[in-house]
Design a protein around this nucleic acid. Sequence first.
DNA 1: AGATTGTGTCATTAC
DNA 2: CAGTAATGACACAAT
Length: 842
Amino acid sequence: MMSEDFSSLDNRCEQMSLAMSSVESPRSSVFTFQSSVHSCHVLRCLDEQRRRDLLCDITVVVEGQSFRAHRSVLASCSEYFTHRVSSHAPQGLVITLPQELSVMGFEPLLQFAYTSKLLFSKDNILEIRQCASILGFRDLDSACFDFLLPKFFRTSSSKLPFQRKSCCKTRCRAEDHGSEVLVEDTEPKPFSDSAVEPVVGGVPCQSNQPANDKPGRHGGNPDPRPEAEIQSDAQTDYSLQCPKYRKFQLACGKERACSGLNLDSPVVTKMCCLLPRPPNPACLPCPGRGGCRQTPGGNTSQLLHRPVEEQGRADEEQGRADEEQGRADEEQGRADEEQGRADEEQGRADEEQGRADEEQGRADEEQGREGKGGRRMLDERKIEADKRNINQTGERDECSGVDCVLSSLPPMEVCGGKSNRSQECPGFIEGTAGIEAHQCPLLARLLDPGPGLQIPANVGVRAYVLGSRGVDPAIPVSSQPQGQRGKEGVEEREQGGERGEYRWGGRSRVEREVAEHLAQGLWSELSCSPRLHGSPQGMEPGSGNCQGRSPSTDWLNQLDMRSNPGRCPFHHALDRGTGSGTEESQLPGCEVSSNSERSPCLSSLTSGDDGDSDGFDTEGDSEVCSYIQRAKEVQLPFSVSRILGLSRNEFQLLLRHHNLTREQQDFVQDIRRRSKNRIAAQRCRKRKLDCIHNLECEIDKLKAERERLMSEGKQLSQMQLNAQHTVSSLYQRVCSEAALRPEQLQVLAKYSSADCPLSALISSTDPPIPGLGGLLQPLACPPPTCSLISSDHLKHSEPPASFSNDTPTEEELSGDWTSTQAHDSDQVTDAPPIEQCDQHRC
DNA sequence: AGATTGTGTCATTAC
DNA sequence: CAGTAATGACACAAT
């Protein structure tokens, strides 16, 4: 426990140190430790108290049924209870709810108040909403239900409201079969088929959706802070992080904007949501650079982009925005809390990173023992990582920036069911888990590592959790529905995923770097690979135009939250990080996507200030397409991505196996060489940035150290003055009590420095002692014997024989007072020596 | 066993 | 800012 706390502290040490640097005196530094689990812990304890009827001070009667609770909790969640409680006696309060409220509607709300999770189903969602509306549950405002209800109760006419992508047109049909609200148990459906699909395509998608709700307005923005402020927070954090992954984390910052900063936002989490994702080539992602390039850029930003006709509703939206702004203060606290949670999450990620590095070190040692050089092994390991990532690039790249979420969070465990992270970063998990695994490529990737990997099908998708904060830490992971599927899923993935490295949490640093690179740089090349379209064998010649629509983005398109993006916390979270996200990039041979097919998530993740979106418009894209074209021309029998992912030996085997022509060999080697070099250049630049950042940090530390030393010097100077003053007073007192004669004082002054307080006792006007001459003047460097003078000696003992004479002896005058002192030392042995003059003086 | 050579990879720089 | 080519250094295997 302590170690965890300290690890968290360690992760913040830099911030703390920087904070110190700003404080003039280190002794006055003030540190702040923000616990991200405290609130959860408190809430959990309150819930336990409620269950045990401990400290409950209110009884809520609904339909004759009584519920014990804490008025403070209810009042903090409900405006209704706030008013009722404040107007009642402090003890024994019994509140009977209006008749229109039911147990079915209130009980989940009560549970929500204590757990941040709302269990709901189609049967009780309306009652819950009514209850929430009447009781004024702040975290379950209409935005939430406006978003959910249409998914549950949309009409059949809105089943397939928008133009579906070609690859899924025939298969992805909206199916709303009675109570099977979200999905069928056995057949995967696109996100549009889920209950959370808003109706689009011109059809009024949500009957209870306010007409003025429109994308970009974020009416349901749970975090009312200005976007700039949020961004600023994120940037501030990232600026404190290692630059090696700064950009990466900057992208994650967007993710965090959707996951971390929006953890408060109610998101849908489906329990037992692990559904089979049978291989469906027709619906498999189309990661083609062209298609997917355009998918992230085009698809994504489409939903983000506010349609022109909706601009006319800006005024109406403004009113809602103002209303939302009113909740800013309340939400601010929660946002800060979640920010702390995000920071802690980052700390854990760093921990895992460290462990991964250790594992890699061990692996390298093992490989080193296998005979080959460590470097070579490392290379091959990287290549393996490349390969693995290439194999997984579909999911990573298809979500592009979404992988940042994965990287910043522990990946597979999230949906894998181990769910440690689910407790650590519940917001994200719920935020993502709210989407059907097979509908969201991100989740699908979490649940389905790749082709050929089967995930055990779970059934029983009947209940959902609407969580505003996260998974209840009190609930054991194993007891949570996700846990049922987790282990199996992970094992399955490990079987099919080579060594299971697709689990990001277990990836080494190198692998992550390579994966990062692949996500950034090789996306285009890999994305066009038909293997990612469901053809694991690789790209088919001539398939460079990626005509197929990526089903991985279908879930976004089908979700199509344009109808109410602000109402969808998930969407909004993704949307927020990117600004307009209107960048469109179109690659040659890539199907142009309409605005309606844009994906806000992808847009937000691939566009933005990090310039990723620009990357899609770079010459490299055309290069990639030229690669594809070139591969087509040379009739390359395997995928270009396959070239990049193979180790050296595997690559050679591949060349041998395929009996390539000279032209083909040159081509693949050229591709491979460029790819390697590209990766190397990226690493080099990253290192350079890292080095610069480290130097900057070093400069900051040195500046702080300089400030600290200067402050310390001032303090020491002040202490010296005080000490001198004290000593001077002491000298004066001693001399006055000893009633030294001026001659004696002069003798003392002789052996005192100019700044010795004793010197001040001797007036410059005092007549010099005859025979002393200038020797009676204070000396700059007194002999060490001065220290032998005891205060007691001065005070109580008889002065030395020499002192008894009015005229010092020649021996004294010649400076041989030492012997005299030594001779008389027996008189002063019992007395502590006076503070050494030279000590105070110097 | 040591030196030489060829090959592959990586880091770096310049464009 | 990113990709690419060129270059040097290094490691490894074969000779």
